[in-house]
Amino acid sequence: MEAATMSRDKKARSEQSAQAATRKTASSLFGTDRSSDVPDSTVGVITHDDPVFTCRSVDVFYANKQAIFGVDLDIGRHEVISMIGPSGCGKSTFLRCLNRMNDTIAIARVTGRIELDGQDILDSRIDVVPLRARVGMVFQKPNPFPKSIYENVAYGPRIHGLARDRVELDEIVHTSLERAGLLKEVKDRMDQPGTGLSGGQQQRLCIARAIAVSPEVILMDEPCSALDPIATARIEDLIDELKENYTICIVTHSMQQAARVSQRTAYFHLGYLVEVDETDKIFTNPSHKLTEDYITGRFG
């Protein structure tokens, strides 16, 4: 009798604490008290001396649900900027605004102002085809076309008419593969399908494909999340080399990767850009508590 009561008490207590725990996670992750957590305006330095992109109060809606809330951010020329944050924080969504890939999602709507060299790319009169030629993209999962390695790289120059003849096209393909650090591995099998390469090679092929049209900016959406550490290291080295000539925006889940490759880091939280600053500063001395919680591994 006594034992029974005791166990019932215990059960009730544990249920209480479980509920409390759920409430706590829910409040911190799903933001019932979002307004108190998220700063009114982004902490850190959003501007850049020589910006390629100037984004002001960018909002993104999926149907009626807002996914991004008033993001202001400059992206500098020839810098690597990484975007970090927990899943669903809107970092990929923001990245896809920069070359208007969100246009492919019927229910997505982007408002605000994103200027690429002073021109508002959100303007409906802007043609996305030349925009995407200027702003290339590398996706999370390597997605080479199911064609030969050569055709994969040659596709962009071909549709944009960048090469006058076969010789020029060959040259573009070779330089692109070389810059992507893939030429040595594939030069004897250019006619074999790109899908036959290893995951890391496929991703470098996708990078080669992106740089074959000589873009100014390369957007990378978690380019290493499907790769092993060695392939990841190769891609990171590649990013380091590419930053001489290209502006690179990289979305990543790995804070180490952000710290290794980028000069600036932007921390997104629940659709808000919480903090953006020099990468060193973000990882050693973050200004906002949410950023600190995230980089110290308290959640995310």
Partner: peptide, 18 residues
């Protein structure tokens, strides 16, 4: 046909038709 193929082509600056 996986959407990643469409995304890859569109991301290269191919038109919808291409």
């Amino acid at each position: 046909v996986p959407p990643s193929i469409r995304e890859a082509a569109l991301g290269m600056g191919a038109s919808k038709m291409q």
